[in-house]
């Protein structure tokens, strides 16, 4: 399987990374170089093997339903590029 220019444009859009048109073709080559190399995974017989999700073998930790956090809006917005009245600001969204 290899990617073409349209695929690269589509995944760049999905990943929200601007990709100038002149970078599309080189990116196609770079990605295909990598995908060609990972193709060797197709040699492996994975029949009946469950995909691994975590190496950790224990029960999921759980918290009690207690409020222990929040009340710190100042710190939450401290690193934001643009705020007003402790709201984050983004260019207007049209729904």
């Amino acid at each position: 399987m290899s990617v073409d220019k349209d695929t690269v444009r589509r995944i760049a859009k999905l990943a929200r990374i601007a990709l100038p048109e002149e970078r599309v073709e080189p990116m196609v080559r770079e990605l295909n170089g990598i995908f060609d190399w990972v193709q060797q995974l197709n040699e492996v017989d994975v029949a009946g093997v469950a995909p691994m999700t975590s190496v950790v073998e224990q029960r999921l930790k759980m918290r009690d339903d207690v409020v222990t956090d929040g009340g710190n809006a100042e710190a939450v917005v401290a690193n934001a590029p643009l705020t007003e009245d402790r709201f984050f600001l983004v260019p207007k969204v049209v729904e």
């Binding site: 929200r16 690193n79 934001a80 590029p81 643009l82 983004v90 260019p91």
Partner: peptide, 19 residues
């Protein structure tokens, strides 16, 4: 570019902000 870190200048909409 919303809550922390680099935010591009001269952007007009959210898509452009992200990309």
């Amino acid at each position: 570019g919303v809550r922390f870190g680099h935010r591009a200048a001269g952007i007009h909409d959210v898509l452009e902000l992200y990309e």
